[in-house]
Computed example of a mutant assay.
Amino acid sequence: MWYEHFTNNKFISMIYTNVPSLKNLRIEKIEISREGDRITVGFDLPFFADEPPKKWLERGYTTTYIEIDFFDIQEVNIKSSKNTYRGDINIKKDEADIFIVNITGTISAEIKAGSGIIQSVRGY
C-alpha cells in the first residue's frame, strides 16, 4: 500500500483497519515551497477512519485529511484545466528508492522526489 513507503505511517495504521487506496479523492492542495525543494500534497481520504481519535468523534468530524511532504524534488509536472481537483494518487518507489507520485483526474501531476513524509493526519 501507498503508506508503507513512509517511515512515519504508524498513526494512519492505528485509525484504519484497512487503509484506503488513494482513488477518487478530493485533492485540497499541491503546494510548491522552499524554492521548489518541497512539494506538499493534501487530500481527503475516501472514507472516514474506522477507529478515529476520541476528540475527532467529540468534535463531530467526518473526514480524514492527509498532508504529505516530498523533498529533494527532482522533477515536477502539473497540468489542470479545472479549478476543482479530484483524482487518483499513485505513490511508489523506483529501484533507486526515488518517490514517483502520479496524480490523474481533473488534475494531472507527476512528482519525482528523493524523500517524503506523512506530515499530518487530521480530521475535520
Rank of each mutant, 00 (worst) to 15 (best):
I66M: 10
I98M: 04
E51T: 15
T64F: 00
E58V: 12
A109Q: 04
K55M: 14
M14I: 02
A109E: 05
F71H: 03
T63S: 03
I12Q: 01
S120D: 13
A96L: 14
N77E: 15
G123T: 12
E51F: 15
N18K: 10
I117D: 08
A96D: 14
F43S: 03
T7W: 05
A49M: 09
V41T: 09
Y3P: 05
E4S: 12
I103L: 12
S13N: 12
N77S: 14
S81D: 13
F43W: 04
D44E: 13
I27L: 09
I111F: 08
D69S: 12
V41N: 01
R34D: 15
P52G: 05
N9C: 10
D72K: 02
V76Y: 13
G105T: 07
R86L: 03
I30V: 15
R59H: 09
I117M: 01
E28H: 00
P20H: 01
L45T: 10
S33C: 02
V19F: 03
V19C: 00
T63L: 11
G114P: 05
V41Q: 06
R86F: 14
T64C: 10
E58I: 12
T84Q: 15
L22Y: 05
P20R: 04
E95P: 05
S13H: 11
D50T: 10
V101A: 09
V19Q: 01
K54R: 12
G42T: 07
S80Y: 14
K82P: 09
G36N: 04
A109N: 07
I73E: 10
K93F: 00
I32R: 08
E51M: 14
I39K: 02
R38C: 14
T106P: 07
E4A: 03
N8F: 02
I91D: 10
